[in-house]
Simulated assay, not measured.
Amino acid sequence: MSLEWLVIRLLESMCRMLWGFAPRMIPHIVRRLGPGRSVFWFAANMPRLLLTMHVLGPLRTHLAAVAISLHNGCTYCAYGHAFALELIYLRDRGHLFPVDARTIATWQDMAPRALARRLRHVLEDAGLHAETLWVDRTLALAAGSRPVDRDEARIAHLVRMLGRMNRIAVEAGVEPDEAQNPVNKNAGLKLRYAQLRAASGEA
Rank of each mutant, 00 (worst) to 15 (best):
A43G: 04
A44I: 09
N45P: 03
N45I: 14
M46K: 14
P47I: 06
P47V: 08
R48G: 05
L49E: 08
L50T: 09
L50E: 07
L51N: 10
T52S: 11
M53W: 12
P58F: 15
L59W: 06
R60Q: 10
R60E: 07
T61N: 01
T61S: 03
T61W: 02
H62S: 13
V66S: 00
V66P: 00
V66L: 02
A67F: 10
L70V: 14
L70W: 00
L70C: 13
H71D: 15
G73I: 05
G73T: 00
C74H: 05
T75F: 02
Y76F: 07
Y76K: 06
C77S: 12
Y79C: 03
I88R: 06
I88T: 10
I88Q: 03
I88E: 03
L90H: 04
R91T: 12
D92R: 11
G94W: 01
G94T: 12
H95P: 07
D100Q: 13
D100C: 14
A105L: 00
T106H: 15
Q108I: 15
R113E: 15
L115Q: 14
A116P: 03
A116M: 10
R118K: 12
R120P: 03
H121N: 07
H121V: 04
V122W: 01
L123D: 11
L123S: 13
E124R: 08
E124I: 09
A126Y: 03
A126W: 05
L128S: 05
A130W: 08
E131R: 13
V135Q: 05
R137M: 01
T138A: 01
T138M: 02
L139T: 02
A140G: 08
A142Y: 03
A143N: 11
A143P: 02
A143W: 02
P147R: 14
P147V: 12
V148L: 07
D149Q: 05
E152I: 12
A153G: 01
A153Q: 04
I155D: 00
A156N: 02
A156K: 08
L158K: 02
R160N: 15
R160H: 14
R160G: 15
M161A: 11
L162R: 04
R164K: 14
R164H: 14
R164V: 05
R164M: 13
R167H: 13
V170D: 11
E171Y: 14
A172D: 08
G173Y: 04
P176W: 03
E178M: 07
N181H: 13
P182F: 03
N184H: 09
K185N: 10
A187H: 10
G188V: 06
